[in-house]
């Protein structure tokens, strides 16, 4: 039933000539940031036709007998290219795919790795079961043909907290929350690299469709104190020092929450709350206005309900 709807949406979306003429090729260019650890950077932009939804960062790690992926991209088409790239880079087939959280830009390519073990926390599996169909409709509508053949995959394997040897590579798994109800942070012990998923954004405004800001704030404090060197954020450039991106994410979340509360207190409607001035210190953050407007949509009705006094008593 879902497939029919998506096929229909994809077909309709593919109609405009300009879009059909555009080539649907993903260019995947890994950059080595440590011994046997490459990052692939997403476009620091919203999900749109121009980038095929390839907006999230991911990591490729070389293991003894297999390559390991932390997140894998937005679509089946992307996953197929990534599979070939990872194999060429490491000389090994992809054996393990870990999903950091439920969002489609990070994990909808999982179907391309049928021979690998796809893993996530029990919470991520639950989240995906509940939301994947809805997110898939949205992705097909936004991206059309880029998504052809993509079916969300609920991870078959379960990740728990702690240190574990994966294909001979020592990884520390830390299940957390804040950006979404279940975010997984993976730290590669050999290189000291923290792969933070969307708990950390860098020079790109954080997105909040499933966020709990108070929890996120606490988690960022925990991440700052966890042992690591470099940090790969979910979106935006690699942070070699490992702290600047955490601090910037925290700064945005603090500002966002006080801005939204201030707008409610000043009697602004949602449209105006999305148009307030963004402080100059965030000038370097891509997609800042876009994410502010999305966050207004995510939080404003709840905040008004919380902050407006009852008028009928």
């Amino acid at each position: 039933m879902r497939l029919t709807r998506r096929t229909l949406l994809g077909g309709m979306a593919a109609l405009p000539v300009a879009v059909r003429a555009q080539s649907l090729d993903y260019r995947i260019e890994p950059v080595e940031v440590g011994d046997g650890l490459w990052i692939v950077r997403g476009a620091d932009a919203p999900i749109e036709r121009g980038n095929g939804g390839a907006i999230a960062n991911l990591a490729i790690l070389a293991g003894d007998e297999a390559a390991i992926l932390i997140d894998c991209g937005p679509s089946l088409r992307y996953g197929r290219v990534l599979d070939a790239v990872a194999r060429k880079l490491t000389g090994k087939p992809v054996g393990h795919v870990f999903l950091t959280h439920l969002h489609p830009d990070h994990g909808f390519a999982a179907g391309a790795f049928a021979n690998a073990e796809v893993a996530g926390t029990a919470e991520v599996r639950r989240e995906l079961q509940a939301t994947a169909a809805g997110y898939a409709d949205g992705m097909y509508r936004l991206l059309g043909d880029w998504m052809r053949g993509t079916e969300p995959v609920v991870p078959a394997a379960t990740v728990t907290a702690g240190e574990r040897l994966v294909a001979g590579r020592r990884l520390v798994f830390a299940p957390m929350a804040g950006h979404s109800p279940a975010d997984l942070v993976v730290t590669d012990v050999a290189t000291g690299t923290m792969i933070a998923g969307d708990l950390v954004f860098h020079d790109r405004a954080p997105s909040t469709p499933d966020a709990d800001l108070a929890t996120w704030r606490k988690t960022l404090g925990t991440l700052a104190a966890m042992s690591h060197k470099g940090l790969l954020p979910g979106h935006g450039p690699f942070d070699p020092g490992g702290q600047a991106a955490i601090a910037q994410t925290l700064d945005w979340i603090d500002w966002l929450e006080s801005s939204l509360r201030g707008s409610v207190a000043a009697g602004l409607d949602m449209v105006a709350a999305g148009e307030v001035a963004i402080p100059a210190r965030f000038d370097g953050l891509k997609a800042a206005r876009y994410e502010l407007q999305r966050s207004v949509s995510h939080f404003y009705p709840r905040l008004e309900a919380e902050l407006f006094p009852r008028a009928d008593q």
Partner: peptide, 20 residues
């Protein structure tokens, strides 16, 4: 059902009223 929340903030000689 029917709960009303509201805020009216004065800006100059006008109030911005929000009702939920």
């Amino acid at each position: 059902l029917g709960e009303v929340r509201a805020r009216a903030v004065l800006v100059g000689a006008e109030a911005r009223l929000r009702v939920a």
